[in-house]
Amino acid sequence: MRDFENFEYEALPGRIVFGAGAARTRLAAEVERLGSARLLVICSERDAPLADALTAPFARRVAGRFTEVRQHVPVDSAARARARAAESAADGVLSIGGGSATGTAKAVALTTGLPVVAVPTTYAGSEVTPLWGLTEEGRKTTGTDPVVLPRTVVYDPELTLGLPVELSVTSGFNALAHCVDALWAPRRNPVGVLFAEEGIRALGAGLPTVAADPADPRARSDLLYGAYLAGTALATAGAGLHHKICHVLGGAFDLPHAATHAVVLPHVLAFNAPYAPGVVHRIGRALGADDPVAGLRALAARLGVPRGLRELGLRADQADEAARLVADAAPPGNPGPVDHSAMHTLLRTAWSGGPAAAG
């Protein structure tokens, strides 16, 4: 399908190193390539032993570590990370872990300009985007700045083998949401569409296999490959309605990031479907489903994704408040018209876990 007569596409710089064992065998060379002599390592407490193991070959280059990463990157956490970078006289940042570690590294880069090398251990995809986000007083602010885009990303499927099935599934659905949103985001373009469709195919193939056999190396590779494509598509297309909803829910109510994306995804797809039949066709083709909304719902149910936002801790009155916040900040160019009434219906349905409704 040829959907574009006119478009703009800006290819983003960045080096990708992908392969099983790449973090063990190639990370040192990539750090050398970056030229940093005093690295600030950013990881969670849980990933600290992994960070120790991966940085051992170039331990002399590690000047400091920051482990107080938090989801949605609260501004106070970002401030502490920046202070640690200054105390360490860091000239580069190495993030090891999920989206929260990457987001914290981006917060440091945003104000310092330090180059970042990222080693993701989940399927977040943010490591290949110039998007940043910070949360303060219940509101998540996002922006785009090329300075936060990691210079190099080392993708190693072996690092995801220990990711629990539940987190693997929700993180994989988070990546699916990136792909779907890129198909109708404000800067949608044919190059990103190709990335998104291939990402959906890889993620749709890998998720059931990982759920059945978490140690399957090919399926883990499929998911990480799909996450890379998802982030790349989103990076050039921008964030659409789905991400605005999830940013509101995460920033205002501190809902778990990946699980929120997983729950909300079928509802936004159903809402926009009547206005974007070409997008629906692409998603269905990639998933191998005539009805991609039903296909996503069936896949989510099969893999144990929570049915509704209330299972994530959101109260009914908070869903009403979120509808107002989303309607006020909806991105331009969404296929379906966005107003408070429409968002109220969408979020109430997503809260209850009922069937996704068309816009």
Results as ranks from 00 to 15, higher is better:
residue 302 R to T: 13
residue 41 V to S: 07
residue 217 P to H: 04
residue 165 V to H: 03
residue 157 P to W: 05
residue 221 S to C: 14
residue 238 G to Y: 00
residue 317 D to A: 12
residue 166 E to G: 10
residue 273 A to I: 09
residue 199 G to P: 07
residue 89 A to C: 14
residue 257 H to Q: 12
residue 17 V to E: 12
residue 246 C to I: 05
residue 33 R to F: 10
residue 125 G to Y: 02
residue 158 E to N: 12
residue 329 A to D: 15
residue 269 L to S: 09
residue 249 L to G: 13
residue 322 A to Q: 05
residue 59 A to L: 04
residue 88 S to Q: 02
residue 237 A to C: 13
residue 197 E to R: 08
residue 163 L to M: 12
residue 293 V to L: 08
residue 161 L to K: 10
residue 114 L to N: 02
residue 340 H to V: 15
residue 336 G to I: 11
residue 90 A to V: 07
residue 217 P to W: 03
residue 120 P to C: 03
residue 263 V to Q: 00
residue 46 R to G: 14
residue 326 V to K: 08
residue 219 A to N: 05
residue 265 L to A: 05
residue 2 R to G: 14
residue 264 V to H: 01
residue 197 E to A: 12
residue 96 I to T: 03
residue 127 E to I: 03
residue 112 T to V: 11
residue 349 T to G: 15
residue 76 D to K: 01
residue 267 H to W: 11
residue 222 D to Y: 09
residue 309 L to R: 00
residue 293 V to P: 08
residue 264 V to A: 07
residue 154 V to N: 06
residue 62 V to P: 09
residue 341 S to K: 13
residue 276 A to R: 06
residue 101 A to P: 03
residue 300 A to T: 04
residue 5 E to Y: 08
residue 336 G to W: 12
residue 276 A to H: 06
residue 319 A to K: 02
residue 262 A to E: 00
residue 302 R to S: 15
residue 245 I to Y: 05
residue 136 E to Y: 06
residue 234 L to A: 10
residue 294 A to W: 00
residue 335 P to L: 11
residue 8 E to K: 06
residue 145 D to S: 11
residue 224 L to I: 14
residue 134 L to F: 13
residue 193 V to Y: 02
residue 49 P to W: 00
residue 86 A to H: 07
residue 96 I to S: 02
